[in-house]
Simulated scan of single mutants.
Amino acid sequence: MTSPSPSADHGSIRLHVQAALAEGASVLLEEAQSRYLGTVMRRTVGDRLRLFNGRDGEWQARIVTLGKRGALAEAEALLRPQAAGPDHWLLLSIIKREALEWAVEKATELGVAEIHPVITVRSQPARPNPERLRAIAIEAAEQCERLTVPAIHPPRPLEAALRDWPAGRPLIAAIERGEAAPPGPQAGSAALLIGPEGGFDRMELDAMRRLPFLVPASLGPRILRAETAAIVGLALLQRPSTS
């Protein structure tokens, strides 16, 4: 199979699908995707689009059928092979719904592999909807041209997340008003922990400082909103190493 020229017109629309992708594969699109293609984007049978599933790379496809209840596309040619992104996790204390959704969108754009909402002493009482957060992550992945969608985990207490922490993955914890250094670049597996508005409780801080895998870090002299801190921290983890 010959890969198309990068300059060719493969269609500006990218959709995430669950089906396997290969040359000639028929891919059934969901009703919402069909409605988006036909009603919002005014596409029709024969038009091109791009499909990805997080496993098989990105494929040029062509719309074969398009109706109100669904659509069928056929994968034609591989545009980009699957490639591994940064193996970074985000642990974010539950904050207000709008702020949490914004953080999920931006963390997806930054390539985070997994998002873990955690419950801390000062977390917001509301509980996020993992399905809605996944929908936000999918839309962000489609827009930013990444090849994967981050895993969105159900909320769990911070204590439980730390108790079951996987060996070999450093956890960089953003500590307000601390004297720690900024987080360094992380080329391998790593995770970032961001607390709630108002910061971590004193007992939480004392417990975290006893953990051998936890690395305290500072995000600068100013107190950042939780969603801002998440994006700043992820960007610092991904910056190129100068060593």
Rank of each mutant, 00 (worst) to 15 (best):
D47G: 13
R55N: 04
L133W: 14
E98W: 00
E227H: 13
A25V: 08
P183Y: 04
R50T: 14
I119V: 15
H16E: 08
L91F: 10
R43T: 02
I231L: 14
R35A: 10
R209D: 02
P182H: 04
L171N: 08
P117L: 14
E74H: 05
A161K: 07
A126S: 15
G67L: 02
I95F: 08
F200S: 00
R210M: 10
I136P: 06
E76M: 11
S93N: 06
E139W: 00
P128C: 04
I223Q: 02
G67H: 13
A217C: 07
P150C: 03
V27G: 10
D47L: 13
L234N: 05
M203F: 05
T39M: 07
A61S: 15
V40P: 10
K68E: 05
G38F: 01
T120C: 15
V112M: 11
S243C: 03
R202A: 12
S5V: 11
A22E: 03
C144K: 04
E179I: 04
I13E: 10
I194W: 03
Q82P: 00
S12Y: 08
E114M: 15
L66T: 07
E114V: 15
Q186L: 06
R97I: 09
R132F: 13
A126G: 12
W59C: 10
S218N: 01
P212D: 03
S12F: 01
L91A: 07
S7K: 05
A187E: 09
R209K: 06
L211T: 00
G195L: 06
A22T: 07
P6W: 10
P212M: 01
T39C: 04
P150F: 02
H153P: 01
K106A: 09
N129T: 09
D87R: 13
A140M: 13
E98N: 10
G220H: 07
H10C: 14
A20W: 00
P125G: 09
M41S: 01
R209Y: 01
V149A: 03
R239M: 10
V40F: 00
L110H: 05
P155E: 02
I13H: 09
I194Y: 05
R239L: 03
L28P: 10
A180Q: 12
P86V: 05
P157K: 08
G46Y: 02
G184N: 00
Q60K: 12
A174K: 08
R14P: 06
E105F: 03
G168H: 14
W102L: 12
H10K: 11
E197L: 05
L205D: 00
P6D: 11
Q186M: 10
P86I: 04
G57Y: 01
R122S: 07
S123D: 12
A25I: 01
R55A: 11
V121R: 15
G24C: 12
A25P: 09
W102P: 06
Q60I: 05
E58G: 07
L219Q: 05
R35E: 03
L205Q: 06
E101T: 15
G54Q: 08
A217V: 02
